[in-house]
Design a protein around this nucleic acid. Sequence first.
DNA 1: CGTTATGTTTCACT
DNA 2: CAGTGAAACATAAC
Length: 262
Amino acid sequence: MPELPEVHGYKTFMERTVLHQNIIGLDCRDTRLLKRSLSEFENQLIGYEFESIERIGKYVFINLNNSKVLVMHFGMTGRPHYYKNEQERPKFGHLQIKFNNGYHFAFENKRKFGWWDLTNSISDYKAAHKLGTDARTLAFEDFYASVRSRKTDIKKVIMDQSVAAGVGNWMADEILYQSKIHPKTRVEDMDSSEIQRVFDAMKLVIEVAIENEAHYEDFPKHFLMHFRKEGGRCHHTDVEIKKTKVGGRTTYYSSEWQDNLD
DNA sequence: CGTTATGTTTCACT
DNA sequence: CAGTGAAACATAAC
């Protein structure tokens, strides 16, 4: 599920729930979700508090009051939970924190592609992991500069987390549908006005998705998410949506609407 | 049983 | 260095 708009909602949820409470316990059911040893997490978390939260793309950085930073990535199937009774711990809540107010925070992660890490510096972490500027705040000049020299399909480029952090598979399809650009268009074949269109659509999709709290059913009628499936029909042309692969990822597009290649 | 899934990382190869 | 394709990670759901 989680791409930029979903993770944005998770951050807001966590800001309303987990800040400024003493951490008194950490329960880990599977250490494969931890990028460091369990004892390192225990040492850095227990006895401390979460002070503030930042989000860059799909990454969440939680600042602790001991100057450490807990880095969280939800993978493909992650979600945060907050509840009082431990009975409410979700089935796939593999990591759980207990606070001194009696409440619990669970990191639900069905497929276990999500993880936690620790760092001393968000900027060092960004550099080391080639994480770019968040797509929501990225300026066109910077987007254009990192896109224009690429020699591959536009969809691959906008999903590159060093270009625009936060764009994932469904957003990339939606952005290109809104731009009327075929996902396999080579960037070197695009002019600056087409790149501008992609950029504008990226901003639009992000804001619409955040406004609607990533509830796809509430998106405007002309959004691909309503018919992004086999047998779906394009809102504009009524032609059946096509399915293909781009960069190894399932890709849906409307061949007549995004007609610059087909 | 086989297929698919909204993500990231690594690696062999061009 | 840029780019590609595939594999790996791990598991539920259809």
